[in-house]
């Protein structure tokens, strides 16, 4: 009987996730320019990926993005969760505001920030100019482009992570916090010695999710910068997309890059999971 209940979900999961993943792995050993005719090339696509000079650049961009994205997202989402948890005034409203970007379409996110970050007529630069800060080329300077996409990436997911952490916070036994307060612990001490250690399992989830989201980031970046300027915001998923769907189409190469991405995400997730378990055991 239980299998009957999970069957519809399993069917969808197997059809749209597992089967395409298996096919993708299979296609990574073939060359195909149209998705209908396949020529076996062995490990040729993998060799081509690791021999492609743009891959090193893409890997560097992805590493920078993921590291900053994960750290900033995690720190800020803990901070926001703590603030929202304490807040009494209009808490529903502020929680909705915090969560709002999560509900926006990535394309809309890209378009909104494209306007906001416009060098000549964008509101951000208008404000900066009024304050004497000049007109930075957010979308035409490589370093600023990376800062912009990290910021927007964090902005998009912050509400989601904060809500998860908020649930974790509300699961903490309040008697522990009250006892610490009665013993004279200050608010920072309570956060550092009680709340954060008890939030570790939830924080681990956030770290894993943020790492996965970081590696998978593509849609809003593609709309915002198209991977530019000068490839500075081209991450691994755009590399896969470009190889698989932009002329000239190279489905085999795109699939091989997809397999590489899977291995990376799997390795990071496993590492996070194992480290988290180790910490819990200690």
């Amino acid at each position: 009987m239980p299998y009957l209940f999970v069957a519809p979900n399993m069917f969808i999961f197997l059809t749209f996730i597992i089967w395409p993943a298996i096919r993708g792995f299979q296609i990574s050993f073939y060359d195909s320019i149209d998705g209908r005719t396949f020529t076996p090339v062995g490990a040729g696509n993998y060799r081509a990926i690791f021999g492609d000079p743009t891959v090193a650049e893409v890997a560097k961009n992805t590493a920078i993005y993921v590291i900053f994205y994960v750290i900033i997202s995690t720190v800020l989402s803990i901070a926001f969760a703590l603030i929202v948890n304490e807040q009494q005034f209009a808490k529903g409203f502020f929680r909705a505001i915090l969560f709002l970007p999560v509900m926006l379409s990535p394309v809309v996110v890209g378009l909104i920030w494209n306007d906001v970050l416009d060098r000549k007529v964008g509101p951000l630069n208008s404000l900066l100019e009024a304050l004497g800060g000049g007109s930075p080329g957010w979308l035409i300077e490589p370093k600023l482009g990376m800062i912009a996409v990290i910021f927007v990436g964090v902005w998009v997911h912050l509400g989601f992570y904060s809500i998860i952490l908020l649930a974790g916070l509300q699961g903490i036994d309040r008697s522990l916090l009250e006892a610490a307060a009665m013993d004279g612990a200050t608010r920072p001490q309570i956060i550092r010695t009680i709340i954060l250690p008890l939030l570790k399992p939830t924080t681990l989830v956030i770290l894993i999710l943020a790492t996965i989201h970081g590696f998978q980031s593509f849609d809003f970046i593609y709309t915002l910068t198209g991977g530019g300027p000068f490839g500075a915001t081209t991450l691994i998923v755009q590399y896969i997309y470009d190889r698989a769907f932009q002329t000239p189409i190279q489905y085999g190469l795109g699939s091989a890059a997809g397999v590489v991405l899977f291995m990376i995400i799997f390795a990071f997730t496993a590492l996070n999971f194992l480290l988290g378990k180790k910490r819990q055991a200690i």
Partner: peptide, 23 residues
């Protein structure tokens, strides 16, 4: 408009909106 050329990666872009905005 450098932003439109450099800031759009490898995508096609047209400055139609820039012309319509009298920029």
């Amino acid at each position: 408009p450098r932003d439109l050329w450099i800031g759009t990666g490898t995508k096609y872009s047209s400055p139609t909106a820039i012309f319509l905005g009298q920029q």
